[in-house]
Amino acid sequence: MRLRGDEQGRALLDALLEGRSEPGLAARAASGLGLPERGRYAVAVVRAGEGGPVCAALEAEGVRCFLRGRGDRETVVVALGDRDTESLTALLARCPGPGGIGPVADGLTGLGAACRLAEVALLTCPPGTAGIVRLEERLPAALVVSQPELAARLVADVFGPLLALDPADRALLVRTLEAWLESGGSAGRAAGRLYCHRNTVLNRLRRLERLTSRSLSQPRELTEMTLALEAFTLTTPQP
């Protein structure tokens, strides 16, 4: 009977993760799983096969969680208690990824939205990367991956001339822009990351400005370049 009750509770949890809004659904799930209906919860979505290690790491720290398989991804529902998502990310730092964590859900009825946004956070992880990211850390990239058609148009409009370059040449300019942005707009620090001279970085950036017809010193055009870079990195197959 207890096993049957657990199965029913997990079926109700699945319904909440799917965003259903049937009357009394959250109360029945809370009763079936022994969870507070209005507690604080987080949802992490990871690639299939990685959810088990995630749950093991959380349970080792006394955190209650539930693992649910959803196609090629696994969903981990975490009862946060008084923890925040930053501390949850720290607990998961040693787990294989990639994975995404949605915003805190205030109650079981918020699990559907938290799950959907955790899936978006996962999509912001570039191919071949590991680690688990919070949606709040990846909002610009989340906007890009949420609108793939617009992302493709953005790449074509801003980076169109780059796409015609030799792949190695294109990759060099893109990596230079990434390093410059990661260095807070400092050519000197970017040069340190790239193991080249500061003037080399400046020359590459000027060439990038000529190719894109955009200036990195103009805030609006810099925003376009930054979002186009996110879209290019996340949606364009890399050599």
Rank of each mutant, 00 (worst) to 15 (best):
R2G: 14
R4Q: 12
Q8I: 12
R10L: 14
D14Q: 15
A15D: 13
L16K: 01
L17W: 01
R20V: 02
G24C: 04
R28D: 07
R28T: 10
A29P: 09
S31E: 14
G32W: 09
G32A: 12
L33K: 05
L33F: 05
G34Y: 03
L35V: 11
P36I: 06
G39A: 07
R40T: 06
R40E: 06
R40N: 10
A42W: 05
V43T: 02
A44D: 00
V46K: 04
V46H: 04
R47S: 08
R47I: 01
G51I: 08
G51K: 06
C55T: 15
A56P: 00
A57K: 08
A60F: 05
E61C: 11
G62I: 09
R64W: 10
C65N: 01
R68C: 06
G71V: 02
V77D: 00
L80I: 08
D82G: 09
R83N: 00
R83L: 09
T85H: 04
T85D: 05
T89I: 09
T89S: 14
T89M: 10
A90R: 15
L91T: 02
R94V: 13
P96Y: 09
G97P: 03
G99Q: 03
G100F: 00
V104S: 09
V104A: 06
A105V: 10
G110P: 10
G110C: 05
L111I: 03
C115R: 15
L117R: 13
L122C: 12
L123E: 15
T124P: 13
P126N: 03
T129Q: 15
T129I: 04
A130H: 11
I132G: 02
V133M: 04
R134Q: 09
L135S: 04
L135G: 05
E136W: 10
E137G: 11
L139C: 08
P140C: 10
A142K: 04
L143A: 13
L143M: 11
V144D: 01
V145E: 02
V145L: 09
S146Y: 08
S146T: 12
A151Q: 07
A152P: 08
R153Q: 14
V155M: 08
F159H: 12
P161N: 05
L162P: 03
A164Y: 13
D169P: 04
R170A: 10
L172A: 11
V174A: 01
V174R: 00
T176R: 00
L177T: 02
E178K: 12
A179M: 05
L181K: 04
E182I: 00
G184E: 02
G184D: 06
G185C: 01
S186A: 01
A187L: 07
R189D: 15
R189E: 14
L194S: 07
Y195P: 00
Y195R: 14
N199M: 14
T200F: 07
N203M: 12
L205T: 06
R207W: 10
R207K: 08
R207I: 09
E209V: 03
T212D: 09
T212M: 07
T212K: 06
L216Y: 02
Q218A: 13
Q218W: 10
E221V: 08
T223P: 00
M225W: 08
T226L: 15
T226V: 13
L229Q: 10
F232D: 11
F232E: 08
T233P: 06
T235E: 11
Q238P: 05
